[in-house]
Design a protein around this nucleic acid. Structure first.
Length: 596
DNA sequence: GCCGTTTTCGGCCCGACTGTTTTCAGTCG
């Protein structure tokens, strides 16, 4: 772990975690609550929506829940000098290698310290390799407190660190969970079964797949579960839970309980962890203690069971909180006041505002694969009232301005014909196809086509497809300058991120949001599973600033138009209501918004 | 070390599972 001036959130988070572990080793009893505080700060930084260093720049570090005067002071020293005298002191005397060992599942602070001492693993370099060697030579099982079984589980866990899987995209995880649920339902003891955790909260990526069951015979259900066809290894199996690893590396946890407590089980295992911690702290103040078994009065020790999740929240004098909001982002306070918003739903969506057709305008990036007619047919099946056809702009290298205008005129004419036939066909739900385009924002902030070419469109989307690494200020100015054109209405896939593949660009969101608000520009939530961009936490910020958002599937084939629901999930996690999402407006409302 | 609609002092979420021990500590979610 190297401390330096430019530490990123994940580095700072790791550092705080290490400091927590160091306190645990040095004097657990004395530092008990420091251990907790540093761990909480670590998680808080991990989940920040902006860089900690930027917050420090603006003097807002202490506003982060979990960071107080003391940690803020230490971080201040790091950002100013690249050093931390305090952290160095805390970590002094501990072998750096032990913190590497903590990356292995099942090895915490105490175990890591013991192993690094006994096996003389001092430096960070190849710490895991040394541990692996010791395991293979059978040296670990002879250490006091270890045995044959713990040695074996360390061996397996090391190989899992090495092949650690990236998080699954939401649709993949949904599909996989669906298959396991179908298998579980073959057990006749099962009363209810639901996907839980980040899957139920519809997070953009899912790590482990969590599933909960209500069963008349939990033991038998667990036995049935571990016989799932793709099981490679059973990690653990007790009376109420079991974990398996599948051949593809997926980690599946099942929690099984009696139907009478299913409501609290559902609540408990949906999380998030932060939501649950906040909820339990809130319950404590009411003299109540929460667990997956229900709610206990701290005074009388009397227990209440809940078969339904809604009753669980009601007992706490809270309105039911949709899983998508359970991230400890203010939802408990809102539930107290009965002010949980009615979130936008897939059935509210009346349009898809980013679709690429196969109409060949010799685009700069990939052209769509389905023709306009099939797209309109599909849009009808989805019950839409209007759509926008948004191919990429004609390539700059292959065309001069005159040629670009010719191509766009051809496309405009094709769309005009489609609109004409829609007008004369009452049976169709789609009433209008918009002539749009996804225009590249060039590195200097200019657009890839001229204003004269833009004038041929109803409106344009703009997006970044090159130079992702510019600094924050340059990128921000670049985007503002692109959005400033009259015909430009939507900032599409704004961060440019590709999940598990590419981080997004750096933008000053305050500046972007302010500009969009003042100039009636919209920001897209791109529903393509590998993008889901704008990300959920920024959706929440945007909505707080009064920005209107659009949903677009970025479909390059009619099948992709079914991806709208993933975009809706992001909107929901960002607390979006119908009013925040332009696509939920009727055609006439949309027309009005377009003219603003 | 953090935090506040009972508190600027005195609390700090809760329980399952595992392995090694012989009643529990460590880890995890």
């Amino acid at each position: 772990m190297r401390i330096h001036k430019g530490m990123t959130n994940s580095e700072i988070s790791e550092l705080l975690h290490i400091v927590s572990a160091a306190y645990e080793i040095k004097d657990k009893e004395k530092n008990k609550y420091k251990v907790i505080a540093y761990d909480r700060a670590s998680v808080a930084v991990e989940h920040l929506s902006s860089e900690a260093k930027d917050l420090w720049d603006e003097g807002k570090l202490e506003e982060v829940a979990g960071i107080g005067t003391s940690i803020a002071k230490h971080l201040d020293e790091i950002f100013r000098t690249g050093k931390s005298s305090h952290f160095e002191k805390v970590l002094k005397g501990l072998p750096p290698g032990m913190f590497e060992l903590m990356k292995v599942s099942g090895i915490g602070a105490k175990t890591a310290y013991k192993l690094s001492k006994e096996l003389n693993i001092v430096s960070e370099k190849d710490a895991l390799g040394k541990l692996e060697k010791a395991v293979k030579e059978g040296r670990v099982e002879n250490i006091e407190g270890f045995g044959e079984q713990s040695q074996e589980s360390i061996e397996k866990a090391i190989s899992e660190v090495k092949s650690r899987k990236k998080r699954y995209l939401l649709p993949f995880a949904t599909e996989l969970a669906g298959d396991i649920i179908r298998w579980l339902k073959k057990d006749e003891n099962i009363v209810n079964v639901d996907p839980l955790g980040s899957l139920r909260r519809k997070a953009s990526t899912v790590g482990d797949i969590d599933i909960a069951c209500a069963s008349k015979d939990p033991i038998k259900t667990l036995e049935h579960f571990v016989k799932y066809k793709n099981t490679k290894r059973v990690l653990e199996k007790g009376d109420n839970t079991a974990s398996i690893i599948l051949a593809n590396g997926a980690h599946i946890d099942l929690m099984v309980h009696e139907p009478s407590v299913y409501g609290s089980v559902l609540q408990h295992f949906t999380g998030s962890k932060h939501h649950n911690i906040a909820l339990r702290e809130y319950a404590n103040k009411l003299g109540l203690s929460l667990s997956e078994y229900g709610i206990k009065s701290l005074k009388t020790n009397r227990k209440h069971k809940f078969s339904k999740e809604k009753d669980f929240y009601e007992y706490l004098k809270l309105s039911w909180i949709p899983p998508e909001l359970r991230e400890d982002m203010g939802e408990i306070e809102k539930a107290k006041e009965n002010m949980i918003p009615k979130l936008v739903e897939l059935s509210d969506i009346k349009a898809d505002l980013q679709i690429h057709s196969a109409f060949n305008i010799e685009t700069s990036h990939d052209l769509g694969l389905s023709n306009m007619k099939d797209i309109v047919k599909k849009a009808n099946e989805l019950g839409y009232e209007y759509i926008a056809l948004t191919e990429h702009n004609p390539s700059r290298s292959g065309h001069d301005e005159k040629q670009v205008i010719e191509l766009l005129k051809k496309k405009a004419k094709a769309i005009e014909q489609i609109n004409y036939s829609l007008k004369n066909n009452d049976k169709k739900r789609v009433m209008k196809v918009y002539n749009s385009l996804e225009v590249d924002i060039l590195p200097d902030g200019n657009l890839a086509i001229s204003d004269k070419a833009l004038d041929l469109l109803d409106f344009a989307l703009v997006s970044i497809h090159s130079s992702f690494k510019q600094d924050k200020k340059t990128t921000t100015n670049r985007v503002i300058s692109a959005l400033n054109h009259k015909k430009v209405k939507i900032f599409a896939h704004p961060t440019g991120r590709k999940i598990n593949y590419r981080e997004g660009v750096e933008l000053d969101w305050d500046v972007i949001f302010k500009f969009c608000k003042e100039n009636s520009k919209w920001i897209e939530i791109n529903a393509a599973p590998q993008r889901l961009d704008l990300p959920d936490y920024l959706v929440k910020d945007a909505i707080n600033e009064g920005i209107k958002l659009t949903l677009g599937t970025d479909a390059h084939h009619i099948d992709h138009m079914d991806n709208m629901l993933w975009g809706v999930s992001v909107a929901q996690r960002g607390w979006a209501t119908k009013a925040d999402i332009i696509n939920s407006y009727s055609l006439s409302e949309f027309e009005k918004e377009l003219d603003r």
